[in-house]
Amino acid sequence: MLSDIERQRIDELLLHLPTKRAACIEAMKIVQEESGWISDQVLDDLAKYLEMTSAELDSVATFYNLIHRKPVGKHVIRICDSVSCWLMGEELLMDYLCQKLGIEPGQTTHDGMFTLLPIVCLGHCEQAPAMMLDDTIIGNLTPGKIDKILMEAAGTS
């Protein structure tokens, strides 16, 4: 079941859209806020609300990089692995993060705190190497900076 607040936020989107379906991408981002990913149940509920079939909505959900159809950790780390960040040592940073978190890209730490994902160019190439921690982009990364970011994120959740 979608919550009242979720429905209200989706209804606001629908006000300026000619079809319900047009709201589906932003609506998926809204319903994803709760647990970080979209379960089959949530997908079904949302599809019904937007008058789409679940299969139609799933075809859209699985297309977009920022929509998750599998559970993720409390925090999602996305490391940019496109060209400018690669030139500035992204691979070493990814290795460092994997080692530090004890996981491979695509996995979640055992305590459920962090999911580590690669992502394409974040458009912050002048601050390469860069990553996204949840909704925030952080650039000019170094191993030391990553230590600090992980510690702060773990502490505030």
Partner: peptide, 29 residues
Amino acid sequence: FEMHIHTSAGRYMCGEETGLLNSLEGGRA
């Protein structure tokens, strides 16, 4: 006239003119 914001969910193809239009309609780009 009216102006609205649409925030996407990350896919290079959305930058392609007609892919963007399909995305705006709530489909794959």
